[in-house]
Design a protein around this nucleic acid. Structure first.
Length: 938
RNA sequence: GCUGAAGUGGUGGAAUUGGUAGACACGUUGGACUUAAAAUCCAAUGUCCAUUAGGACGUACGGGUUCAAGUCCCGUCUUCAGUACCA
């Protein structure tokens, strides 16, 4: 009997599905373990070999944990709302739900054929109304909450209204808009209902506000900051401009500090935590208020260096700053206007690209230094950003390089306030322990103390206050798109109203086209049945809107990250129609124990999901405030693109090793035309495209036309995609799983190279041959020899450590060595071969199941216990290094185990022969050092 | 610029707390089997000299610590990823 992987794999996949082998129960006497993958967006292209990398790793871990006696939850679903399905719908008119459904079918088939141990009974899809009902529900809860700084948690808006009606808002410490006026209880009670609602909106955790947003005209929608890369849209690479729009926003800034602190409690990589810290961007400092000479208004700045306040020699406002117009003197007006206009013309991108050029204009106005009362000239300059802090800085040229460069460029005074520091060529930016000089009451102090005293003095004069500033901005939550969650919102007098939770979900309406309307409204503006009837509590036709009982519904939809910010909780109780998930289920599974996914979600999904989890925790809905204990970022599998060189302007191709001229145009060739020696199948290439049909090919000889190889991201447009379907049908899923692990460390980026797969495939064939010969099982009840036990236990030890450390690549090598050794040893012993199968099962589950069955087991191998390693079989593995030390011969002896002193001595004595061979001497005395190193005096 | 990670054969990569560097695999070369090919099996494969037995040099580069350094320390260079006039 041959190793017929196709047959075996189909058989066991069917068995697992029928037996529901991987169905997790929401209670068990076993300890729980939750292994989660980032769920995929089901794209039309299907999976390529790079996609399953993380799924294979998590599957190995999930299977391992089951063998170790855990009740494992390992679910999978689809992040099925998103732009590509909608773009496709715009082009073809096909409803996104239909394409999405078709794509999911493909995904499911591809995932199934790889033998993943997902519990599909818990599948979720963000685009299904049963699911987004709860996304809408969470939105309503956010709307009905505000952030109470005193308690440092979210609270119900009802509690806030109670306080307002009893004592006004002066004692409320909330995260809210800065511009909220102070009002008393009497004032509050006398406000109209609309006015009250407007005020409350400014406290809510999700609120409507006219904000400057990142508008992408090509995509016809706004984008969040993390959806923009280098000034263009992450998806599609289209230009992005600034635009004012009324949008829903999420007050994630309320959670900035907790999001930062929470990082200390979770086991995520340092790189990823660092990304999130940068994104949150906490800076501790102070706001300082400068009075203006000859003007009533004041300039407020934020600084992290209040200790340097006596070094201020000018101020700089962002060109967009609202005061610029008011304070500019008549003489300076033309210059200032010209500068403001020039800056406005420059795109965000140009401004970012050009950070070297120093530019700015004097406004003609002077501020007054809060302590010295000296006049401080006010400039504008584009190195100050309107969006950060207050959009204005107090410039301390001796302590900040940008201020320094600006001062030098415009010949502004650079006073030195640092004791014994030379600032003739550059600013001194080190906080360190340098002493402040020439600074009145701060003179002689170091940074820390000086900052504190400066802030105290500013607060005493009412000229500033200690402040912590965060870079994290509130997240825009509206998208002008069709294929997303509809908001459960209708409008009365332009004020948003929530639809009561019992009427959810509000399902997406049908539209005849997926484009914005002629009036520029989002696609939902085309829906005919899209109005809310407050008496029927139902969605009704638009033309019935009477603004008395029937009102317009929100036309925006939610962004892609809405559904993915809480899905891990839904898997715990995926079909609950009364709750997001039952309390019992949430309390049982609590959080994800291991989360595997790409690092590209560092500042998007992973930050938003932590935000929502903390909010749901404040609400008492979920029992933990961090959703994932441990997170691993799998690297990407890259494609090996092939390029053929064509002489520019001709149809003549030259073999890559023959190229001498420089005017070569490199054209992507499909990687399937290229063999392992980088040689092109010329005839296949010729018939690939009409334009190549009559092309001329120059090479040493016809069969040796070389291509140029380059590692790139796998993508259809680069013709370097390798389809897992082909690999599975040629080598089997077990080979693919092993090979993806074998390629290299999980976290690393590495190129795919199909030719290497024969190595692991041969291993599986050898494994098969170790158990099966002709038509019979070779496994006997023979007693295991010392060698057999050594090989087995070595393997158990290594593989267990590897899995615990997520170094799956090296266990594949360990398996190969084990099988080679056991084959050479002629091992047929069941006591060895049975546990060996369990070791391999998480990696190559199909072949393990098949051989397990041949050993006479009726139950699936998934119920088998993971073998425990027995150190006693490894005692003899000793390495010895002779060394000369202090003129005496000494041996250093290493054992590959932690053993007791007695065991080491026994091992050493048993190895006298080895040592004697090495140095011609026999050790006389053994010095045992704690750990594994042993010194032996020869 | 800052932050994080990393530089090991022709290639992907091993190497525990400092302990025989290059495991394992691909590729290459030679051989066996075969009419032939595929498949399979065996052998060789860091570099240089000796071509037997051995020797020298080797983990980006330059120093250092140590009986012993890919691993630790100092300096330099390079690559990748993230982020950036953040006051």
């Amino acid at each position: 009997m041959m190793y017929n992987f196709n047959e075996i794999e189909a058989k066991w996949q069917k068995y697992w599905a029928e037996q529901q082998t991987f169905k997790a129960e929401n209670n068990s006497t076993k300890p729980k373990y939750y292994v989660l993958d980032m769920f995929p967006y089901p794209s039309g292209a299907g999976l390529h070999v790079g996609h399953p990398l993380g799924y294979i790793a998590s599957d190995i871990y999930a299977r391992y944990k089951r063998h170790k006696g855990f009740n494992v939850l390992h679910p999978q679903g689809y992040d099925s709302f998103g732009l590509p399905a909608e773009q496709y719908a715009i082009q073809t008119g096909q409803h996104p739900a239909i394409t999405t459904e078709a794509n999911i079918k493909t995904y499911r088939r591809q995932l199934d054929q790889m033998g993943f141990s997902f519990d599909w009974s818990r599948e979720v899809r963000t685009s299904s109304p049963e699911y987004y009902k709860w996304t809408q529900w969470i939105f309503i809860q956010l709307f009905n909450s505000w952030y109470n700084n005193s308690l440092d948690k979210a609270e119900s808006i009802g509690a806030l209204v109670d306080v307002f009606s009893q004592e006004g808002n002066s004692n409320i410490d909330a995260v809210c808009d800065d511009a909220i006026p102070v009002f008393t209880a009497d004032e509050w009670n006398s406000f109209s209902s609309d006015r009250q609602q407007q005020l409350l909106l400014q406290y809510r955790l999700t609120y409507l506000a006219e904000t400057e947003v990142n508008w992408c005209p090509e995509l016809g929608t706004v984008l969040a900051n993390d959806e923009i890369v280098n000034g263009v849209s992450e998806r599609g690479g289209y230009p992005v401009t600034r635009k004012k729009m009324t949008q829903w926003s999420m007050r994630i800034s309320a959670y900035a500090e907790r999001l930062l602190q929470g990082l200390q409690t979770i086991d995520w990589t340092d790189a990823l935590k660092e990304s999130q810290r940068n994104w949150i961007g906490k800076s501790v400092g102070a706001t300082v208020v400068f009075d203006l000479k000859d003007h009533a208004s004041t300039i407020e700045v934020f600084t992290t260096r209040p200790d340097t306040i006596f070094g201020v020699s000018f101020m700089t406002l962002a060109p967009e700053h609202e005061l610029v117009n008011q304070i500019t003197s008549l003489a300076q007006k033309p210059a200032v206007d010209a500068y403001v206009l020039a800056t406005a013309k420059r795109s965000e991108r140009e401004r970012m690209a050009d950070v070297k050029t120093i530019s700015g204009v004097f406004t003609g106005a002077y501020a007054e230094h809060p302590f010295t009362k000296k006049p401080v000239p006010v400039w504008i300059g584009d190195y100050v950003l309107a969006g950060y802090g207050t959009g204005a800085v107090m410039a301390v040229p001796c302590g900040d390089q940008r201020d320094y460069d600006f001062a030098k460029h415009f010949n502004i005074e650079i006073p030195n306030i640092f004791e014994g520091v030379d600032i003739s060529t550059e600013a001194f930016t080190d906080k360190g322990t340098t002493v402040i000089a020439n600074s009145d009451f701060l003179t002689g102090l170091e940074y820390k103390e000086a900052s504190k005293q400066a802030i105290d003095a500013l607060e005493a004069k009412n000229h500033g206050v200690g402040k912590i500033n965060y870079r994290l901005r509130d997240a825009v939550f509206s998208r002008q798109r069709y294929w997303g969650e509809p908001f459960p919102v209708y409008y009365i007098n332009g004020l948003p109203q929530m639809i009561a939770s019992e009427h959810l979900p509000i399902s997406l309406p049908e539209v005849e086209k997926y484009l914005p309307t002629e009036e520029g409204e989002p696609p939902l503006g085309r829906a005919e049945v899209w109005a809310w009837d407050t008496t029927l509590n139902a969605v009704v036709e638009n033309d019935k809107i009477d603004h008395k009982t029937i009102f317009p519904l929100e036309l925006n939809t939610m962004p892609g990250w809405a559904g993915s910010s809480w899905y891990f909780n839904r898997y715990m109780d995926a079909h609950n129609s009364n709750e997001l998930a039952s309390t019992e289920a949430l309390n049982y599974w609590k959080e994800v124990d291991l989360y595997i996914g790409g690092s590209e979600h560092a500042t998007g999904h992973l930050l938003y999901a932590r935000f929502w989890q903390k909010f749901l925790f404040d609400l008492g809905v979920v029992p933990v405030d961090e959703f994932a204990k441990k997170l691993i970022n799998q690297g990407m599998i890259l494609g090996m693109s092939a390029f053929v060189g064509r002489v520019e302007g001709t149809n003549t191709f030259i073999s890559a090793d023959k190229i001498t001229t420089e005017s070569i145009q490199w054209i992507h060739a499909d990687v399937s035309f290229v063999n392992a020696s980088d040689e092109l199948d010329v005839s296949a290439f010729k018939s690939w495209r009409e334009e190549f049909k009559n092309a001329e090919f120059i090479s040493e000889n016809e069969s040796h036309f070389k291509v140029k190889r380059e590692v790139e991201k796998m993508s259809k447009s680069k013709y370097n995609v390798v389809n897992p379907d082909d690999i599975v049908s040629d080598y089997g899923a077990d080979s693919l799983r092993l090979y993806e692990m074998f390629l290299g460390p999980l976290e690393q980026y590495k190129p795919w190279n199909t030719s290497g797969i024969t190595g692991v495939h041969n291993f599986l064939k050898k494994l098969w041959k170790l158990y099966v010969s002709e038509n019979r099982s070779k496994v006997t009840s023979a007693v295991a020899t010392k060698d057999h036990l050594k090989t087995l236990n070595k393997t158990i030890k290594k593989v267990t450590e590897d899995i615990e450390n997520f170094s799956f690549n090296t266990s594949v090598s360990t398996f190969m060595i084990a099988v080679n050794e056991l084959t050479a040893q002629g091992c047929t012993s069941k006591t060895i071969l049975e546990p060996l199968l369990v070791l391999i099962a998480p990696y190559a589950p199909h072949i393990a199941e098949e051989l397990w069955e041949q050993l006479g087991h009726k139950e699936s191998i998934t119920t088998a216990e993971f073998p425990e390693f027995d150190a006693s079989h490894l005692v003899e593995s000793v390495k010895a290094y002779p060394i000369s030390f202090n003129g005496k011969m000494r041996f250093t002896l290493e054992l590959s185990l932690d053993l007791s002193k007695e065991e080491i001595e026994a091992a050493v004595m048993g190895n006298e022969k080895t040592l004697a061979q090495l140095e011609g001497r026999v050790p006389k005395k053994v010095i045992v050092v704690p750990g594994k190193i042993v010194n032996i005096v020869g």
